[in-house]
Amino acid sequence: MSGLFDVETGDYITSFHRDSLNGIMKYSLALGATLFAFWLLWSGHYDKPFIIVLGAISCLFCLWLSMRMGIVDEEGAPVQMGIRPFTKYGPYLVKEIIISNIAVTKIICSPAMPLQRNMIVVSANQKSELGRVILANSITLTPGTISVRLEHDKICVHALSFAGAEEDLSGEMGRRVCELENTS
């Protein structure tokens, strides 16, 4: 733990509060396990112990580097969300992406191109910065709406049609991200 680097003061951290130590342990364990799982999946080496040890060493090196950069926290390794982003939020996002893709495809393929470009401001009332970033990225990921600027709790959105803008203003997506954020 002596390699930890405090970004704000520029010093190496030597003493911890017990809670933050537990937190860092949790996030770094999760990050290390994820790194090693991905290494195993991508390399496909399971029978040569020497190569597996080399992979484990490189994972530990990456973990040490990211600790030095100070990004091992609830944003860098969001273990507090578990797998709910993939099980609950993912299917909803896929459905939204397909619906809005078909809408934008209709606009592009129609000869007259009925554009109704407008800018709206969507309020993001998520507690954490991670939640707001998830919301802004989801808005950009559904074609027809692009989040142009993210300031505190307001997201400036450029929309291609009024229908797409109204869908974002209804706040359905924001409610789902809030649900994701509330850890049980």
Binding site: F5, V7, G10, R68, M69, G70
Partner: peptide, 12 residues
């Protein structure tokens, strides 16, 4: 206009 030093220092 450059590649760094615009945010927190120390993020080597």
């Amino acid at each position: 206009g450059n590649f760094g030093h615009s945010e927190t220092e120390g993020q080597s």
